[in-house]
Design a binder for these strands. Structure first.
Length: 458
RNA sequence: GGCUCGAUGGCAGAGUGGUGAUGCAGGGGACUGCAAAUCCCCGUACCUCGGUUCAAUUCCGGGUCGAGCCUCCA
């Protein structure tokens, strides 16, 4: 298996530190608002990676945190006049619902910052004790010059970063690039007791502490969106390495490319976000998932209606092959080697998808029962690695386009089809075609197959 | 300004130093009462200018254009 490592800038062979326990950490959401489709990309991509790893290794400990201490959460809570827990519980639940709809499996561990404060504090104490951090005016800061490797991950020179910095340097910093590990809270702000007074942790230390608590000093894979490379992951790396006396923090760094809207980054601050739940009102979750996997995970992906419609048509073809295969004998055939090889080559989902279509074509052509049974099993097994093709074909074709529910009821459709069948039997093709056109106008496509009429929603 | 990454046929999107993935759209044919679905056939695509090479879309350098980071952000 090969993975592109941001640290080295190249594709490397993946060799876990301990093949009996592969460890992976992916930065999860800060739960202060709804998740948008851009947030869904890393969740789906690393879900696929976890599935691929689990085929190969007996145990994969996948941690994806929930950041439930953050100033944006404080702001949202203050605005509503509620405790932060009200906000974080609400949006954690929504995040789970959205990802469930996209077929994203839950990670092995899903730690919350509020459950790891003791660990965060102990890690900060260790950093102070070994000279990597210092307390100043109620803050604790990580001293960046104390870590020689700073900038290696994001390939940045510290001098240039300071020169290009757009923020004012706080007076208590020893070095302009030092960043906060702990900051004081006012009486109105949420805060927790610490050796440096009542306060709250900085963003970066949270992930370092949770990774250490659940996965140990060195983890195999660390993932996240490309925008996290700097400063978040650079800082995590500095803290964790310093806290662990130089031990490697993450052996492989993976970063997914961005989702754009009309070729511009989608972000809450730009205000051009498309919420996952809005999309799900008009499209099946499986199509959204496939749309997110049509491009390679490291490439930018432009999100638009056409991309989503394209994904639906692809699923129509794939599910169509399964439907036409009808009832076949059970087979325990697994995904073909070429399919797995594509995914093990830096998660090449487009190449893997191409293999899926080859299987569908072979299935459509095959007239041999045993061969068809094998192909159906291969298609479904391969689909399961991508988190696709797991529902009965009939359900795919009869589902409405989204959670909103549209079009005529199944009873109405069945009644119309019965009338059409009678018209056809009487060779009244004009009436039969009128019924078909009428249904089409209402979003239902009728097809005549060798097994009789069948329908699907457009 | 500094750094990172891209530029493939109508669209999406892999990949490769020399036999043009895959899907959608489109054209032709088979099948069909007509369609749809399915199958068969059809596209001489690799931003630009140099260089290396017997051979470059693929490697190297310049340019142009695009995205991202340098500030919270997947």
């Amino acid at each position: 298996m090969h993975l592109h490592n941001t640290l080295s800038g190249r594709k490397e062979e993946f060799v876990p530190l301990n093949p009996e326990r592969v460890t992976m950490y992916v930065c999860g959401p800060t739960v202060y608002s709804f998740a948008h489709i851009g947030n869904a990309r890393p969740a789906v991509v690393f879900d696929v990676l976890a599935r691929v790893l689990r085929r190969r290794y007996p145990r994969v400990d996948y941690t994806r945190n929930i950041t439930d201490i953050d100033d944006k959460i404080n702001a949202a809570a203050a605005k509503e006049g509620v405790e932060i827990g009200v906000i974080t519980r609400r949006y954690t639940d929504i995040y789970h619902e959205d990802l469930d709809a996209l077929g994203v499996q839950r990670p092995t561990f899903e730690p919350k910052v509020t459950e790891h404060l003791a660990h965060i504090i102990s890690m900060i104490e260790r950093l102070i004790a070994n000279g990597s951090a210092y307390a100043a005016q109620g803050h604790v800061l990580f001293n960046v010059p104390s870590y020689a490797g700073y900038g290696e991950l994001s390939k940045r020179d510290r001098r240039e970063m300071i020169a290009g910095a757009r923020v004012e340097v706080a007076p208590y910093k020893k070095d302009p690039s030092d960043f906060v590990l702990w900051k004081p809270s006012t009486d109105e702000q949420p805060g927790w007791p610490s050796p440096w007074g009542r306060g709250r942790p900085g963003w970066h230390i949270e992930c370092s502490a949770m990774a250490e608590a659940l996965l140990g000093d060195t983890i195999d894979i660390h993932g996240g969106g490309h925008d996290l490379v700097f400063p978040h992951h650079e800082n995590e790396r500095a803290q964790s390495t310093a806290a662990h006396e130089g031990a490697t923090f993450a052996r492989y760094w993976l970063h997914n490319g961005f989702l754009t809207m009309d070729s511009e980054k989608m972000s809450k601050s730009l205000g051009n976000v498309l919420l996952i739940r809005e999309i799900l009102k008009h499209a099946p979750g499986e199509a959204v998932r496939l749309a997110l996997l049509t491009g390679h995970y490291r490439q930018p992906l432009d999100w638009n209606d056409e991309a989503l419609a394209d994904a639906r048509r692809k699923l129509d073809r794939l599910y169509g092959a399964l439907r036409d295969a009808g009832d076949v004998a059970a087979s325990d055939a697994k995904a073909p080697d070429a399919f797995i090889a594509a995914l093990e080559d830096d998660i090449n989902t487009p190449a893997a998808l191409a293999e899926l279509f080859e299987l569908a074509k072979a299935l459509n052509k095959s007239t041999d029962a045993a061969e068809r049974a094998t192909l159906v099993a291969q298609l479904r097994d391969a689909g399961s690695v991508l988190g696709l093709l797991q529902q009965p074909p009939g359900e795919w074709f009869s589902q409405s386009t989204g959670s909103a529910g549209e079009g005529p009821s199944e009873a109405e459709i069945e009644a119309a089809l019965a009338a059409r069948l009678a018209a056809k039997a009487a060779r009244n093709f004009a009436e039969a075609d009128r019924i078909r056109d009428d249904l089409k106008a209402r979003g239902v496509l009728v097809e005549d197959s060798k097994d009789g009429q069948r329908w699907r929603r457009a």
